[in-house]
């Protein structure tokens, strides 16, 4: 599953003054407070619930990892429904 555009935008804003992310494997370099806010944004604005067990910094390290997490969650939701 694709990362929603507004989440990408949010990530790029969080990274400022760093330039927007282009490479999916580029470290996002968001500090821990930024990551906490990112999780809150995903839940409140993107409707993506991050489970406690998924709160591992690695899941939020790159766009690819984050995309994998979202895809995995979408798949899990399909399987269970």
């Amino acid at each position: 599953m694709e990362i929603p555009q507004k989440l990408k935008d949010y990530i790029n804003e969080s990274r400022a003054p760093l330039p927007p992310v282009t490479d999916p494997d580029e470290p996002l370099q968001i500090d821990s407070l930024g990551l906490i806010r990112l999780v809150a944004f995903m839940e409140s604005d993107c409707g993506i619930r991050v489970e406690d067990e998924e709160l591992i910094a690695e899941n939020f390290a790159t766009l690819r990892n984050l995309g994998d997490l979202i895809a995995q969650k979408a798949q899990g939701a399909e399987t269970s429904s």
Partner: peptide, 12 residues
């Protein structure tokens, strides 16, 4: 799990 703990303590 310091990252998870920080999310917990900030809001969850």
């Amino acid at each position: 799990q310091p990252f998870a703990f920080s999310v917990f303590v900030h809001h969850r």
